[in-house]
Every structure is written in structure tokens, then in C-alpha cells.
Amino acid sequence: MSVFVWIETFGGAAESSSWEALGAAQSLADALGTDTTAIVFGEKSAAIAADAGKFGVASAIICNADEMREYRLETYAALLGNLVDQHKPAAVVAVATSRGRELLASAAADNKSGLIAEVIDLRVEDGSLVGTRPAYAGKVLMEMTSRTVTTFLTVRGRAFPPPPVNAAVKPSVTQVSPATIATELETQIDELVAELGAVNLSDAAIIVSGGRGMANNPAAAPAGLKGEEANIWKAKEGFAKTLQPLADVLGAAIGASRAAVDAGYIPYEHQVGQTGKVVTPDLYVACGISGAIQHQAGMRGSKIIVAINKDAEAPIFKLARYGIVGDLYDVVPALTDALRARLS
């Protein structure tokens, strides 16, 4: 009847967002009068379980068999499903990353249990779990409850704080065997291309985003580029030479509007909005973004929004805490210089 929390790992270390899942799991465990159990699969799982002890986890179930070394949906879902069936936890919590989403949904299906996804707030009401989650691309919120013995919950990144580091608890660790047979797997990972500086907008505390206004770069495009090609060159140059330095000073990730992505100014991985990422940074700096409703759906949960736009009537200013009316190609470099001076 414990609360399970899946600690997502990569390359033998816990993903730091996993501690947010643990924070959510612990508040749930407190409300239910139970404790938390860390589920750690893969390389160095014993060491990671010990780390979880620093955050107050009472026990851990680990599996570091060879076939569990790297995350795979089939192996991980089969074992998680078995453990849930065996221990009947009140809940299983993970962060709603690509892996967390598919793993919990699959194990929930195997166990015919309820899943509440992308939870941003959580409470216990008359013994039932009630999760608040976005719907309609975040334009409205909904409350959902589950009536099965175990409820699976994915929590949105940055929605729950990690628990405080307490006097180290030494969790009681149980080692288990995989639930699958390696030779019977349906998929095989042929190649892994780790991206340098991979875009992780969901985790970012600060995001600097560019929109269609990025094409108003005063820098002259190379001779021979005409019309839209020249705009693409200017916008790309602007992302690299104007926005990136500001992002570097702030330690920020680079985002973009759909208009900028669709125009070919920046790859899709950067898109914030209804068909991109939903982000909730502490600070969101929107540069040359008008603020279409579908963009707002992706960033309205940011703590502080700053808008820089030439058009004083742009809808983004209605959402912003601070606004500067002006050309981003004047304002952003000035902001970068002033920040450098202030932070040095």
C-alpha cells in the first residue's frame, strides 16, 4: 500500500526531474498515511536507490540485470507491471517525460488500473486520489479521479518541488529479476545518437524564445538570397548571434513559436505551444512573438513572462508581466550586455 515512484535514469545516473516525482509521491504518501518505495531499474541502480534515501525514501526495489541496463519499454513495463500486481501500491508516480508517459500507460493497461496523466496538482479526497491536469492544450483544467486499487500518475515537469534533503535514510533495498526473456523481445535499439546540447525545454528554468520577428534582422543576407530565403538566413543568424548570447548569459534554453518553426527559421524541437512543448519556466522571454492563442497554450504557465515586440498591440503583452515595445534586434543585445555587466 506504499506509493511507488519510478526513478528515471540515464547513463547510470538519476534524471534530476525524478526527484520531483518523489516530491509528489511523498506528499501523497503523507496524505494516505503510508511511505514511498523507489523503483530503480538499470545501471548503478543500487547507488541511485541510496541517493533516493537522502530524500527520505523508505525502501527501494531495484533490478540491474543486463537486459535492464538501458531503458526499454518492453522490459521495464513488464517488470513494473509485475511489481504493481504483487505489491498493490496505492499509486505509481513518474515524471511525464517521453519514457515516463509510455512506461506508466503500458503498465497501467497491463494492470487494468487508472492513469491520470500530466498532473499539476494532487490531493486525496475521501480516500480517493484527485489529480488536476490540463485539457484542450492547457486552455482549460480538469480534475480526474481513479477508482482502481492502484492509480498511475504522471506529473508534469516543474509542477512539484523535489523533497528537502533530510538526514540520510538508508532505504531497505530489494533486488528483483527481470520479467522478460531477452531473446523474446520485439524491438532492438540499433543506434543511439545523443544530441549535443539537446533541447530540453520541459526542464528549463529560463527560456528565451523567438518568433516571426526574428526575420527582421538588420544584418544583410548574402548576395543571391532573395525573399523568403533571405528571411530564413536572417532569422537563423538572429537565433545564433542575438538570442543565443542572451540565453548563454541566462543559462537558458532556446524556444520558438510555431510561425518561426513553420517558416524554417529553427528546428521543430524548439517549438513551444499547442503542437510543440508545454513549458513552465520561472522566466520566459518572448522576442518578436505576437502571442497567438496556440502559443499561449504552451507558455502561459510560466512564472514571469517578458515580452519584447515592435508592435505595442501584440496580444503577448496582455500575458506578460513586463513588456518592452521595441525592435528585438536593439533590445536583446542591450539586455545581454547589461546582464553580463550585472552578473560579472
Binding site: I116, V140, E143, S146, R147, T148, F317, L319, Y322
Partner: peptide, 23 residues
């Protein structure tokens, strides 16, 4: 199968503070 979950209610997200300070 019996539904495992149910939607209790829908509501509007809290309004963002309307106060925008133009610098």
C-alpha cells in the same frame, strides 16, 4: 471494461495577473 477513471469537473485556469508593466 469498467472505466478506471472519471472526470470530476472542468474549470478555467486562474487568470494571469492582468498588470503588465511596460518598461
Amino acid at each position: 471494461p469498467t472505466a478506471a477513471t472519471s472526470a470530476l469537473r472542468y474549470f478555467n485556469p486562474p487568470q494571469r495577473e492582468a498588470a503588465t508593466e511596460m518598461i
